[in-house]
Simulated assay, not measured.
Amino acid sequence: MTRTVYVNGEYLPETEAKVSIFDRAFLMADGVYEVTSVLDGKLIDFAGHSKRLARSLSELDMRAPCSDEDLLEIHRELVRANDITDGLVYLQVTRGSAGDRDFAFPDPETTEPTLVLFTQSKPGLAESPAAKSGIKVISVDDIRWGRRDIKTVQLLYPSMAKMMAKKAGADDAWMVEDGFVTEGSSNNAYIVKGGRIITRALSTDILHGITRAAVLRFAQEAQMEVEERSFTIAEALEADEAFITSASSFVMPVVELDGSAIGSGTPGPVASRLREIYLEESRKTAI
């Protein structure tokens, strides 16, 4: 089946979608993106993703390509056109093309940004077998640029980290800087000790996860204790349990780190309960 995608105001078959070779995302990784999950044909936390997109654009002095209302309509139309029950909507905004290649970017007021969206069908997205078995992670040095709070398309090193994990027989990687875990290759990282959820505080060091914000809010509403601070690999290995959060994995237990079991080596009660709460509450507010 050929998907219907969206490119700069047009709904097209994916085989006909084209972007200029002079687009700055292609030449300079000058673009940002968001991924919104779809469950039961509805968008999960669209408002959060839309708000973070606006922040990313602002931080890079990039113009928004359309209104939030138009963006929502595009998402919904792609979900409908591609008959997505469970899956993802990928959105990318770039600074566009202003002619020839140049390090200095053009005036944002006179340059049309490029807007691209497409869907990915993921039947049973919320019933991932990994949620019952947990995933394995390795630690790698965090050598990315310093503005990880901006969700840019600069994903080469995270991709390399994923491949390092795969080569080591693991599922993902946790990045470490100055002795402390920053985040996963495409997710936020957590440990649990004595019932307390510990995760790095927000800063330019990590992505301000939309799922992270929701999960921490639900945890506090459930009377779980949350501590936002940095933690080490050694501390993680002594934890009772661990997990990650992201828009596509929701809440995913981590059962092994660098070849050693975390806690019992099985998904812990805190991560399992948070996953249940997150999915239940997110489905209630999906649009």
Results as ranks from 00 to 15, higher is better:
residue 1 M to K: 09
residue 9 G to H: 10
residue 10 E to H: 15
residue 12 L to F: 03
residue 12 L to Q: 09
residue 14 E to G: 11
residue 15 T to Q: 15
residue 15 T to D: 15
residue 16 E to V: 13
residue 18 K to V: 08
residue 19 V to Q: 10
residue 21 I to C: 03
residue 24 R to M: 01
residue 30 D to L: 15
residue 31 G to N: 13
residue 34 E to M: 07
residue 34 E to I: 11
residue 35 V to T: 11
residue 36 T to M: 13
residue 38 V to Y: 13
residue 38 V to G: 06
residue 39 L to E: 06
residue 43 L to C: 05
residue 48 G to S: 08
residue 49 H to S: 02
residue 51 K to A: 09
residue 51 K to C: 00
residue 55 R to V: 12
residue 57 L to T: 15
residue 57 L to G: 11
residue 59 E to H: 05
residue 60 L to S: 06
residue 61 D to L: 12
residue 63 R to E: 10
residue 69 E to R: 14
residue 70 D to C: 02
residue 70 D to Y: 12
residue 71 L to Y: 04
residue 72 L to S: 05
residue 75 H to R: 13
residue 76 R to W: 03
residue 76 R to F: 01
residue 82 N to M: 05
residue 82 N to Q: 07
residue 87 G to H: 09
residue 90 Y to K: 13
residue 90 Y to T: 01
residue 92 Q to F: 02
residue 93 V to R: 06
residue 93 V to I: 09
residue 93 V to Q: 01
residue 98 A to W: 08
residue 98 A to Y: 08
residue 98 A to M: 05
residue 99 G to I: 05
residue 103 F to E: 10
residue 104 A to L: 14
residue 104 A to V: 14
residue 108 P to M: 11
residue 109 E to P: 03
residue 110 T to Q: 11
residue 116 V to A: 10
residue 116 V to N: 01
residue 117 L to S: 04
residue 120 Q to M: 11
residue 121 S to E: 15
residue 122 K to F: 14
residue 122 K to W: 14
residue 123 P to Y: 08
residue 124 G to W: 05
residue 125 L to W: 13
residue 127 E to S: 15
residue 131 A to R: 15
residue 131 A to P: 06
residue 131 A to H: 14
residue 136 K to F: 00
residue 139 S to Y: 12
residue 140 V to E: 06
residue 140 V to Y: 01
residue 141 D to G: 07
residue 143 I to K: 06
residue 143 I to T: 08
residue 144 R to D: 02
residue 145 W to P: 01
residue 146 G to E: 14
residue 147 R to E: 13
residue 149 D to R: 09
residue 150 I to Q: 04
residue 151 K to Q: 12
residue 151 K to N: 15
residue 152 T to W: 01
residue 152 T to D: 02
residue 152 T to M: 03
residue 155 L to C: 02
residue 156 L to P: 00
residue 156 L to Q: 07
residue 161 A to K: 05
residue 162 K to A: 08
residue 162 K to M: 08
residue 165 A to Y: 10
residue 168 A to Y: 00
residue 173 A to Q: 08
residue 177 E to C: 06
residue 179 G to R: 10
residue 181 V to D: 05
residue 182 T to H: 02
residue 182 T to N: 07
residue 184 G to T: 04
residue 186 S to F: 11
residue 187 N to Q: 10
residue 190 Y to F: 10
residue 195 G to W: 06
residue 196 R to S: 04
residue 199 T to L: 07
residue 203 S to G: 11
residue 210 I to T: 13
residue 212 R to Y: 03
residue 220 Q to H: 07
residue 220 Q to P: 02
residue 220 Q to Y: 00
residue 222 A to H: 10
residue 222 A to K: 09
residue 224 M to T: 04
residue 226 V to S: 09
residue 226 V to R: 12
residue 227 E to K: 03
residue 229 R to C: 05
residue 232 T to S: 13
residue 233 I to A: 15
residue 234 A to L: 14
residue 236 A to F: 12
residue 237 L to G: 01
residue 239 A to L: 06
residue 240 D to V: 02
residue 242 A to S: 09
residue 242 A to L: 04
residue 245 T to D: 01
residue 245 T to H: 04
residue 246 S to M: 01
residue 248 S to N: 11
residue 250 F to Y: 15
residue 252 M to G: 12
residue 257 L to W: 08
residue 260 S to M: 08
residue 261 A to L: 15
residue 263 G to R: 03
residue 266 T to N: 12
residue 266 T to C: 07
residue 268 G to R: 06
residue 270 V to L: 14
residue 273 R to H: 14
residue 276 E to M: 02
residue 278 Y to P: 03
residue 278 Y to W: 03
residue 279 L to M: 03
residue 281 E to Y: 05
residue 281 E to L: 07
residue 283 R to I: 11
residue 286 A to F: 02
